[in-house]
Design a binder for these strands. Structure first.
Length: 465
RNA sequence: GCCCCCAUCGUCUAGUGGCCUAGGACGCCGGCCUCUCACGCCGGAAACAGGGGUUCGAGUCCCCUUGGGGGCGCCA
């Protein structure tokens, strides 16, 4: 009998409140996360926070050979840096009893069956089907094996892998990003749930945990859409109900090609090491591919307020590092002193609000601030061209009396202009070069008071001695 | 090979048959801010992939082509 979702009795073996919104981010700790994974995590986080729900970080570490604790720790660090603080952290490697029980339940119900083909044999079957223009769907040979067949195969030394028998029906679900999705399960291979070595593939643990943990919404990349149909069938075979699904499109590189090749440089770890602001990364990841303008956010608040899965485009979006860099600079340019003082101090560059406000406009990464700190307060090499020596020396005498303030520059350069007859670039550039050693930099009107009279005189007279 | 999704300025997008002379944001270009690089402000250039339909009327609906993404694993 075909299973009808609508008339399946509501059997929820979960002691969870039905209405609780709960999402999960389930990375496998076989490496660090990259911008694509992080985007999924951020989307989940924003959704959970907006709904007042919970965010589960669930490590998919059932593959003991490839999973490593340090990667799990690294991923936790990456998320923390991004501002994501999971409400619950779980490790699937500690939950095998649940998966074993579910597997038994499926075997008892005739939904999990043993198969004995080797990977090679399966590959040949697929090739043959493809050659004949047929879809490479598993032929269910394992399902038709008799007890004697199995005994014989095992006597040959073969150990079975186990497949889930999909029901013969179309699965329909309403994807929160993609709309109604319909999949004919007869055109999909029965998924292998348990490997020949007895280990679990991701499908069963994922479904079992989503049920057990009361996950209400599964938000993930569109590379999982077909899996969703299979999982709906599994959820129901296990006596549960599938959560709501939302499959967002994937990111491509700036060239429009898949992101997969350059994941190393796009790891969160690498972006952080490159000196980018976490909120620049978060802002970009949260807004790219949506109808909202990609603007810097200083905290999650605004992002949470405007978050809506419906704003996500179904088309792939490009991740452009140049745009991220630009966003990072814009974020810094508008960052108030109070928000950054602690980090300036950590860099040894906390010289007060006035310094930050003038210097921030000339940085694209926070670390760039040290250059301006040095230019303002440290030792520099004044640049005074031979042609400008007399001019610069003369300018020293024109320095106004009294404490320097933001009017000093104007007063001073006006006087120098008067006495020297110079104007424009010829007037200002030699002064900038002498005062900062550079032909570019923050506004001198605001920088000069910070440099102060003593340092200014010292720099202006350096080349003359 | 087959299946699914997508297709508007360089990029992210608004657009749900007349409100579109196609809007916004970033970027780009120009101007201004008595100097530079920036910041800021003002202004400008910039797109409906192509071809067929349907319709009085199509960016908007349908088909084909092209292009991009995803899937068809004892990966996740």
């Amino acid at each position: 009998m075909a299973i009808c979702r609508a008339c399946t009795p509501a059997r929820r073996p979960l002691n969870r409140t039905a209405m609780t919104i709960r999402v999960r981010f389930a990375p496998s700790p076989t490496g660090r996360i990259h911008i694509g994974n992080a985007r999924t995590a951020i989307l989940n986080w924003l959704f959970a926070r907006k709904a007042g729900g919970e965010f589960i970080l669930r490590f998919d570490d059932t593959d003991r050979a490839r999973s490593r604790a340090e990667f799990a720790d690294g991923i936790s660090e990456d998320l923390a840096w991004l501002g994501i603080a999971p409400d619950i952290v779980q490790h699937q490697s500690k939950r095998f009893a649940l998966y074993d029980a579910a597997a038994e339940q499926l075997k008892d119900g005739g939904r999990l069956y043993a198969c004995y083909e080797t990977p090679d044999e399966l590959e040949r079957k697929r090739k043959r089907q493809l050659a004949r223009g047929k879809p490479p769907v598993y032929d269910r040979a394992g399902l038709n094996l008799s007890d004697e067949d199995r005994a014989k195969l095992e006597a040959e030394g073969r150990t079975p892998h186990w497949r889930f028998k999909l029901s013969a029906r179309a699965v329909v679900f309403d994807d929160l990003v993609r709309g109604e999705q319909s999949f004919d399960l007869t055109s999909v291979s029965d998924p292998v749930l348990i490997r020949g070595d007895g280990s679990y593939l991701y499908t069963l643990p994922s479904v079992v945990d989503d049920m057990d943990m009361g996950v209400s919404h599964v938000i993930r990349g569109e590379d999982h859409v077909t899996n969703a149909a299979v999982q709906v069938d599994l959820f129901e075979a296990l006596g549960g109900t599938a959560p709501a699904f939302a499959h967002h499109s994937l990111l491509t590189g700036a060239d429009g090609k898949g992101l997969s090749k350059r994941l190393g440089s796009l790891s969160i770890e690498a972006l952080r090491a490159a000196g980018l602001e976490a909120m620049a990364v978060v802002s970009h990841a949260a807004l790219v591919g949506t109808s909202d303008a990609i603007v810097p956010h200083h905290d999650m608040g605004g992002l949470i307020d405007s978050f809506d899965l419906g704003k996500l485009s179904r088309a792939p979006a490009r991740f452009d590092e140049a745009e991220l860099a630009n966003l990072n600079a814009r974020l810094l340019h508008e960052t108030p002193y109070s928000e950054i003082a602690g980090r300036l101090a950590a860099l040894g560059c906390d010289a007060g609000e006035a310094f930050w406000l003038v210097a921030r406009q000339n940085i694209s990464k926070l670390a760039d601030i040290s250059q301006w700190h040095e230019v303002t307060y440290g030792e520099i090499d004044p640049v005074i061209a031979a042609d400008d020596l007399a001019f610069v020396t003369g300018a020293v005498d024109a320095l106004p009396d009294g404490a320097f303030d933001e009017t000093t520059w104007k007063t001073w350069t006006s006087a120098v202009k008067e006495s020297s007859g110079r104007k424009g670039k010829a007037l200002f550039m030699p002064l900038r070069l002498a005062l900062t050693g550079l032909d570019h930099g923050p506004e001198l009107a605001r920088l000069l008071p910070l440099i102060g009279r003593d340092r200014a005189i010292e720099r202006l007279t350096t080349g003359s001695g």
